[in-house]
Every structure is written in C-alpha cells, then in structure tokens.
Amino acid sequence: MNSENNTQLLHQKYIDSLKREKKWVRFYQLLIFLLFFSTWEIASQRNWIDPLLFSSPTKIWGLLIDKIQDGTLIANIGITLTETVFGFILGTFLGTLLAAILWWSPFVSRVLDPYLVILNSMPKVALGPILIVALGPGFSSIIAMGAIISIIITTIVVYTAFKEVDPNYLKVLQTFGATRAQSFKEAVLPASFPTIISTLKVNVGLSWVGVIVGEFLVASKGLGYMIIYGFQVFNFTLVLLSLLVIAVFATIMYQFVDFVERKLIKDK
C-alpha cells in the first residue's frame, strides 16, 4: 500500500518535472523572439543599422496593415500559395510516377541512371527562362518551376524506397500468383508510403524556392514579385514584409504536411 502510494507520488513528480521543462523551453523561445524584434526596432531607430536597408518591425507592421487594407497582399499570398501547392503536388506525383516506371522496368532504370544523375545535379531554376518562353509568362510556367525543382530528387528517393521493400513481401504475393501491377499496389507502394510522405516535407521547401524564383522572373504577381518590385524601387520594407509572410506560410505548410504524416503513419 505504502510503496504503491510512493510510486504514484514519484510518477506525479516526474510528470511535473516534464511540464516544468516544457515551460522553460517555451519561455526561452518567446524570449528570443521578443529580443530579436526589439533589438531590430531599437537598432533601426537609433541608426545603428541602416534603416533604409533593414527597415524596422514597426514600419513593416504599418505596411502590412496598409497592404491588407488595399487587398494586394491577400491577393498576392493567394497566388503564390496556389502556385506552391500545385507545384509541390505535381512534383511529388510526377516524381513518384517516374519512380514507379523505373521500378517496373529494371532495364529502363539502368538506361536512365546517368541521365537522372545529370538532371539531379543540374540547378533546375536555371531552366526558368526556357520554361517562361515555352509556357508563357504566367501561372503555368511558375507552377512548372515549383514542380520541376522537386521531381528528380523525389524520383531518386522514392525509387530507392521501392527497391528496398523487403523481397519476402513480394515472395508472398508471388506465391499467390500476383502480377507485377498487383505486387506494386499491395506491397511496394504501401511499404514506401512513409518515404513518400517524408519527401513531401522536403518538396514543400523546394517548391517555395521554385515558385519564388519563377515569380522573380515573370515579375507580375505574387510574393516573389513583391520582393523583386521592392528591390527595384528600393523599398526594403516591402522586401522584408514579403520575406516574413513567406516564412510564416512556408512554416504553416510544413506543419500541415507534418500533421498529415503523423495521421497517415499513425500505426507505424
């Protein structure tokens, strides 16, 4: 009886210590956040840093309110977000499809191997001008940028996962007389699901890069356009505002994918 109580007490203490530690972590995170922005503000106001170049949090906040009120910010966020989501889904889907083709035919995969290596090492954003001329300066070429940047790396990672599926699962299916398509559907794809989801996380980041660079080049709409416009008219408050907005939305998207991952692979 006594020892039971004791265990309970110790457990409670342990839980409390965990909670306390969590509180401290949160406290320091908040402290860094506040310190960063207040130092920035003070440094800018006292001219320790060039206010023209580095702006200040209050100026950025003022511009944020302005841009929300005149509706341009929301419109631009909407455009960039749509492009990124499409680019990222398209990149992941096409990359996985390509990986499936490589898995399907080992011969094709051997033939294409050096080309994949070349394509993977090439900086994809350099294809931007060609895409813009080919697809026109707009929505589709920017989505293509967002997709192309992640296709090859997705292909390589997912194909490796396909190949690493325990051959005994395939053996089980083979003994039931499964076709290659059935083997793919029943074993290879579901076994590689965790890898595919984790490439999604990488692809979110990559797609942002592709889309922002695409908007730099097309320079008509979106957050990337806001950056390049702010740069051209030397309005660095606008540049920094866009950057912060991008940081917030990229984080939200990453967290969303992370949430989906945990939901889907709950039983792992």
């Binding site: 299916l173 007389g177 029943e186 579901p190 039983d267």
Partner: peptide, 23 residues
C-alpha cells in the same frame, strides 16, 4: 516463409483474404 510476413498496413482480415483477392 520463415517469418509470418503479414502486411503491416493491412488488417488481419485483409491479410487472410489476400490470396483470394489476387486470384
């Protein structure tokens, strides 16, 4: 096989119906 090699992403039911489903 040496080990059961039940598919972890399927329920027991889906696992035991697998051979019938494939054919």
């Amino acid at each position: 096989l040496q080990q059961d090699y039940l598919f972890p992403w399927k329920t027991i039911e889906e696992n035991i119906f697998l051979g019938l489903k494939l054919s």
